[in-house]
């Protein structure tokens, strides 16, 4: 288990849970649901926010919010 904020650029993982209720609803509605494949596509020039791809959708998210998203990498 890792936090989304800990992924490397290009690394893929599966969404496990979102621990912050506030961000959760927003992300769930955009389709970031548990079990979805998520890929860290790139970081912004100052490494924050980051851009992730979930089911063909590019989403930008701040590191502080990405900290609350738990993912399962293929190694887990």
């Amino acid at each position: 288990m890792k936090r989304l904020s800990e992924l490397q650029v290009g690394e893929k993982a599966f969404v496990e849970s979102i621990q912050d209720e506030f961000v959760e609803q927003q992300l769930l509605e955009m389709g970031v649901t548990p079990g979805q494949l998520i890929e860290l596509e790139r970081k912004s020039p100052f490494s924050d926010p980051i851009a992730v791809v979930v089911s063909n959708l590019l989403i930008s998210i701040r590191l502080s919010d990405a900290d609350n998203i738990i993912v399962k990498t293929q190694n887990d």
Binding site: F22, V23, Q26, L27, M30, P49, A51, L57, L58, I59, S60, I61, R62, D65
Partner: peptide, 11 residues
């Protein structure tokens, strides 16, 4: 409220 920023980047 907490400031938050989750945004779709369209193709």
């Amino acid at each position: 409220e907490r400031g938050f920023y989750v945004m779709e980047m369209p193709s």
